[in-house]
């Protein structure tokens, strides 16, 4: 327990539930650190989550208002929620790579297109780990997982020329960054920028799952060994897009549009 967790997390959830060596907990703490550095009060943040390791384990940890959506749909929910909340309230979503990039991609892209004021934090553990370790579109190519016993053979969206973040960029996201959980201060700094963006931000934080990916793909549960491999795993990291302020935020633009409409029931 640290000062950060005591300050921001619910007592019964403050300890975290991730497996030994998992990067989920340090990544989660980095979001809290960014909030703390920005000095945003608990009352001004609504925290939503998806499904999977990252969704389930971060749900209802935030002391303030919190919700969990169905798998992959939390971006659509946040779009509706954004219309109901005043502009000073921030929406932060912690989700997984499967939630954001596969099952929820349709809604994620439309959320980016609309420039909905929301910060999506993708806690990328390199596959579907809460179901025991199956490959996702961020699993390193060739990896053995429970659903790729001979190694993955399809091209992924994270390494060899195809990058999901380019798709999200083209969809209109106004801030995009990718980091590994090991990149310390750079991660917090990107998260600060993301949370301050009035529009749509996405920060992907990559870390290896030791319990499943480590055992299945790397053949070890040894935490230092897994992280030694991870340090050499090639990933394009840093801020990939920063066009904050270039497009109007969705709910703000919506209200401006509505102001142009003549009020009162004209006819039916």
């Amino acid at each position: 327990m640290t000062e950060l967790t005591t300050k921001y997390l619910r007592d019964e959830k403050a300890r975290g539930t991730s497996c030994p060596g998992c990067g989920l907990r340090p990544a989660h703490l980095k979001v809290l650190e960014a909030i703390d550095r920005l000095g945003i009060s608990q009352a001004d943040i609504v925290w939503g989550t998806g499904i999977g390791c990252s969704g389930r384990q971060t749900y209802a940890t935030w002391k303030g208002d919190t919700f969990a959506g169905t798998h992959g749909r939390v971006y659509a929910m946040a779009t509706g929620l954004r219309l109901a909340l005043p502009p000073n309230k921030k929406i932060i979503l912690t989700v997984g790579d499967g939630d954001a990039y596969t099952i929820g991609l349709q809604h994620l892209l439309n959320c980016a297109r609309r420039n909905v004021g929301v910060t999506v934090v993708v806690l990328d553990n390199l596959g579907y780990q809460s179901t025991g370790g199956q490959y996702s579109i961020t699993t390193p190519e060739g990896s053995v997982t429970d659903s790729s016993p001979r190694g993955t053979w399809e091209q992924n969206w994270a390494g060899s020329g195809l990058d999901i973040l380019n798709v999200i960029k083209e969809a209109g996201a106004t801030f995009i960054a990718r980091h590994t959980v090991l990149q310390g201060d750079a991660v917090v700094s990107s998260l600060e920028k993301a949370i301050q963006n009035p529009g749509f931000s996405l920060v992907q934080i990559v870390y290896p799952c030791v319990s499943h990916f480590g055992v299945q793909a790397l053949g070890t549960r040894n935490i230092p060994q897994v992280y030694t491999w991870f340090e050499s795993y090639p990933l394009a990291t840093g801020i990939l897009q920063d066009s904050i302020g270039s497009r109007p935020e969705f709910s703000d633009a919506f209200r401006q549009q509505n102001k142009k409409v003549k009020k009162g029931n004209q006819d039916v």
Binding site: F67, G69, T70, R73, A76, M77, A78, T79, G80, L81, R82, L83, A84, L85, Q106, H107, N110
Partner: peptide
């Protein structure tokens, strides 16, 4: 799928 989820989110707010 999005339509009703957007409604749910708005109602949640």
């Amino acid at each position: 799928i999005a339509a009703l989820h957007i409604c749910n989110g708005a109602s949640l707010g």
